[in-house]
Computed example of a mutant assay.
Amino acid sequence: MLYSISDLEQLSGVQSHTIRVWEQRYNALKPMRTEGNTRLYDDAELKKLLNIVSLNQSGLKISKICSLSDHDLESLLDKQVNFNQGCSKFDYYITQLVKSGLAYNEYYFDKLLTSCINKFGISDAYRNIIYPLLVRLGLMWRKDDICPAQEHFLTNILRRKIFSAIDKLSLKDVGQETWLLFLPEDEDHDIGLLFANYLLKANHKKVIFLGTKVPLKSIKKVLQENNVDNILFFLIKLRPKKAAQKYVDDLQKICGPIKINMAGNTHIIEQLALPGNFTRFYSVEAFENIIQNPATI
């Protein structure tokens, strides 16, 4: 796969200007050139950049890093993995997870992610590592610059970790407040919904988790058969404003006065006219506030 310099910026978190400087001054990367002199980078160059970024974020000088052979770079990186277990620089973990994910290296990805969860806890690992990782990859996925196989590989491991955290929670002390969680029938990116499921259960809420691609008629049936206090759904996919507004209005007709919470694509949500019983949130902290302080909804 080939990447533009803007793609590298999105994946590495390093500005395009800085990447160009590293190329010219330290020979860090060797891009191909189109007939129009546009830089293009292959998978090997992307992985090398991610390694360079990781080591630089750990305190090593860029001049030293770029003078190393590929073998020495990998050896130093292996040492830095152990060293950084006591480091709070989350960007290091993010860039290494991107690298191993794109290479389908399940062993390394799983090992590093497990280490992050053990060190920081699932909640902080999600806030500071997993969510930023998804954000960094989001633009590439939407533009189809990362193939579906890579997306599925990454998200399936992330989903497995969150499911594991959910399974460790006790269901004995669940309260009466009930939450219904789902994604619309054209949505299938459920990492955020799964983590919300974890947070709700960790706060002793009863959850009816329907998952992805749920038709409105199914929502209506669940509401007819259960006493639901709160609803949570995500609008993530790009869609016309008219279609998004129709979905919100149709959901409102089905749910009536039930409290409805939504998150997702800010560009879409901010254009919508939301009924009074809708609450939108933009961060994990805001959602936790909704859970812990229901009177503020």
Rank of each mutant, 00 (worst) to 15 (best):
M1T: 14
M1H: 08
L2Y: 13
E9L: 08
L11S: 00
V14E: 00
S16P: 08
E23L: 10
Y26T: 11
A28P: 06
M32P: 08
N37L: 08
A44I: 11
A44P: 01
L46A: 05
K47M: 09
K48D: 03
N51Y: 02
I52D: 02
G59H: 08
K61M: 11
K61F: 06
I62F: 06
S63V: 15
I65H: 09
D72G: 04
L76T: 08
L76M: 12
D78W: 06
N84K: 12
N84M: 14
S88K: 15
K89E: 14
K89P: 01
D91G: 15
T95I: 07
Q96D: 10
Y104R: 10
E106Q: 12
Y107C: 02
T114W: 01
S115Y: 11
G121N: 13
Y126D: 03
R127Q: 03
G138Q: 04
L139S: 05
W141D: 01
W141H: 01
I146G: 00
Q150T: 13
E151L: 03
H152N: 11
I157Q: 03
I162E: 00
A165E: 06
I166W: 00
D167M: 03
L171G: 09
E177C: 04
E177F: 00
L183F: 08
L183W: 00
L183S: 02
D186T: 14
D190M: 06
I191K: 00
G192S: 13
L194M: 15
A196W: 00
Y198P: 07
K201V: 12
N203T: 14
K206F: 04
V207E: 01
V207T: 01
F209L: 01
P215R: 04
I219L: 07
K220W: 07
K221S: 15
Q224N: 14
E225V: 14
N227E: 14
D229V: 10
D229M: 08
F233Y: 12
F234L: 15
K242M: 08
V248R: 12
V248C: 09
K253P: 00
I254S: 09
I254P: 07
C255N: 05
M262F: 07
G264H: 04
G264Q: 06
E270P: 05
Q271D: 13
F278K: 10
V284S: 04
V284R: 03
E285R: 10
P294D: 06
I297P: 00
